[in-house]
Write a protein that binds this DNA or RNA. Structure first.
Lengths: 149, 149
DNA sequence: ATTTTCACTTGCAAAATGCAAGTGAAAAGC
DNA sequence: GCTTTTCACTTGCATTTTGCAAGTGAAAAT
C-alpha cells in the first residue's frame, strides 16, 4: 500500500503504535526488560518463546530506530552491548500492563495468576503503579520477583 | 519454535495478547468498529491503511476464532455478514485507549490531535471512559464524531 | 432477466520469518 | 601469549506470510 513520506501507512494513533511495536516480538523484549531485568542480546535470546537470532537482531534495530530502546556499550565487557528503555519506551509500560490485565481475565491458564498482587494494583490504578515501575526499571531493577506470590 | 498443546508459544500474559491481536491489522479492525461504527467486510476494506482482501478475510476469521469478534447475518441484506465485538473484544478498548495516549504523546503529526477531549479523558481516567464507550459500542454507536473538536 | 453489489477465494510474486551454520572481536583459561 | 570460549551478531537458504489482481457465486437492485 501507499505510505506517507515518513513511511507510515497513516497517522492514526492506533496505526502509529502498530507500526512501532505491533508485531509478535517487540513487546516480549519490553517484558523481558521490565519484568526480568534483561538488557543484552544473549539474555533476550534465552526467552521461552524462542527468538531466532536474525529476527531478534532486526527487532532490536527497529526499536532503537523508533526511539523505544537505547543501545549502550557494556561498562566492563567490550563484547556486550546493552539495551535500555528510553522515556518513549518506559511510557509503553501502561500499555503493557493493560494488556496483562486483559490476558489475565481471558486466559484461564495465564501465568498472570502468579502475580495477582500486581494485576490487582493495575486494575485499581494503572497510572500510579506504572509510574512506580517506570522508576524501578530506569534504575535497572527487575520487578517480577517482588510480586510473585 | 515448539508450542504448548493449545498452540501458544507460552501462557505469559503478554504473549497471550500478542497471539490474539498482535499483528499489523487486528487493532485497526477494532478501531474501525469502535470509532467509526463499521461492521461489515466492505466497510473495513475501505480503511485508509488499505487491507488486501484475503488478509482482511483471514484476520476476521482469526478474531472470530479467538472470541474477540462475533459474526452475524445482516438483518435485511442476505449477502452481508456483520461483525460485532464480544465482551472479550470490548475489554480491549482500554488497551486501545492506552495505545492512543502513547501515540498522541510521541507522534507529532498524530491525528489524535483532532480528538484531544477524548485523549484527556483517557489520561484522566481510562477505566471510566472505557466503560462508557463500551456501552456505546455495544449499542452499535460510532464514537469519533462526538469528540471531534 | 440482466446488471451490480457484496463477501469472499484463488493464484502467483514478493517480503518476512525461521533455522543452521558461520564470523570476527573481546574475554577467560592455561 | 596462545588457545579456547563467549558474545553479538551475519549469511544463506527453505518455509511461511503478505500483498496484488483477477476471479466466483449468491443475493439485491434495476
Amino acid at each position: 500500500m501507499k505510505k506517507t513520506k515518513d513511511n507510515l501507512r497513516s497517522h492514526c494513533p492506533v496505526n502509529y503504535g502498530l507500526e512501532a511495536f505491533g508485531d509478535r516480538w517487540a513487546l516480549l523484549i519490553l517484558r523481558d526488560i521490565v519484568f526480568r531485568g534483561k538488557h543484552s542480546y544473549g539474555e533476550f535470546l534465552r526467552s521461552e518463546e524462542g527468538f531466532s537470532t536474525n529476527i531478534l537482531a532486526s527487532r532490536l534495530d527497529h526499536l532503537v530506530e523508533t526511539g523505544i530502546l537505547r543501545r549502550e556499550e557494556h561498562e566492563t565487557d567490550g563484547r556486550k552491548e546493552s539495551y535500555w528503555l528510553t522515556e518513549k519506551g518506559l511510557d509503553l509500560i501502561p500499555v503493557l500492563f493493560e494488556m496483562i490485565l486483559w490476558s489475565a481475565k481471558y486466559d484461564s491458564q495465564s501465568e498472570a495468576k502468579r502475580i495477582m498482587r500486581l494485576v490487582e494494583l493495575i486494575r485499581d490504578d494503572n497510572r500510579s503503579i506504572s509510574q512506580k515501575v517506570m522508576e524501578q526499571v530506569k534504575r535497572g531493577e527487575a520487578i517480577v520477583a517482588e510480586y510473585l506470590s
